[in-house]
Design a protein around this nucleic acid. Structure first.
Lengths: 107, 107
DNA sequence: ACAACGATGTTAGAAAACCTTACATAAAAA
DNA sequence: TTTTTATGTAAGGTTTTCTAACATCGTTGT
C-alpha cells in the first residue's frame, strides 16, 4: 500500500526541470515561494523534484499564461486537495462497511 | 508505441544515484568505464541516469558482491540483450502472419 | 493617476556538486 | 610472480545551484 512509485520520487535537480518544462529557474523557484510546489532538498540544500512536480509545473505554467495568478492557482489546489481527501474518506468508509458485512472474520 | 516512460528517462544526477544505491561515485563511474551502464550527459558534461539505470546498478552491485567480475557481467548482459531481441523479432513475425491472415484489408 | 503588487529577468558571490586524471592498494587472476 | 580488477583518495578545474538584491513592466486596488 501507499504506492510510492517513480513518478513521485523527488530525484530531479532544477536544471533538468528547466530543460523538461522550458521554464526558467527563476520561475520554478518563484512558484515554490508562492507555495505551489514543494521540492525536497539534498543535504547540501539543492532542490529535488519528482516527475509529478514537473507535470504540476507545466499545469501551472499553462494557467499563468491564461492570466491566472499564483494566488488563485493556490486556492484551486487547496480546494482540489480537499475534494480528493473527501473522496478518499468516502471510499474508505464504504470499504469498512463492506468488510463489516462480508469481510474475513477474525474469530 | 515505444513506451518512453518515467522509468527510462535519464534525469537523475550521480549524487542522487549514490544516495539511492549506496554505491560510491567511484564505483558508479567505474561500471560505466566497464560498459555496464550508459548515462546521458547534460550540455555541461554531468551524467544523467534513469530509474532503470539505478535498478541495473543494484543488480550489478549484487553480482559484484557475489564475486562476479565486470567482464562476465558484461557478457551476460550482451547475451540477455540478444535473447530479448530474438524474442522481439519472433513476436513481430507472428504478428505479421496474423495480420496477413486476419488483419484489416486495405482494399 | 498613482501606489502597491505580481511575475520575471539579471547580477553577484558563495557553496555544492560534478568532472577528469593520477596515484595507491589489496585481492584475485593469469 | 606479474598483471589485472575494483576501489579509495586527492588535486584542480568546471558546472550547477543557492540566496539576496535590485530592476522592470504590466496589473490591481484606491
Amino acid at each position: 500500500m501507499a504506492q510510492e512509485s517513480y513518478k513521485d520520487k523527488k530525484v530531479i535537480t532544477i536544471g533538468i526541470v528547466r530543460e523538461l518544462t522550458g521554464l526558467s529557474e527563476r520561475q520554478i523557484r518563484y512558484y515554490e515561494e508562492r507555495k505551489l510546489i514543494f521540492p525536497e532538498r539534498t543535504a547540501g540544500g539543492s532542490r529535488k523534484y519528482s516527475f509529478s512536480d514537473i507535470e504540476l509545473l507545466m499545469d501551472i505554467a499553462e494557467k499563468i499564461e491564461d492570466g491566472v495568478q499564483t494566488y488563485e492557482i493556490r486556492q484551486e489546489m487547496i480546494k482540489d486537495k480537499k475534494k480528493a481527501e473527501e473522496a478518499r474518506l468516502r471510499k474508505k468508509m464504504i470499504q469498512g462497511q463492506l468488510n463489516a458485512q462480508f469481510g474475513v472474520r477474525k474469530i
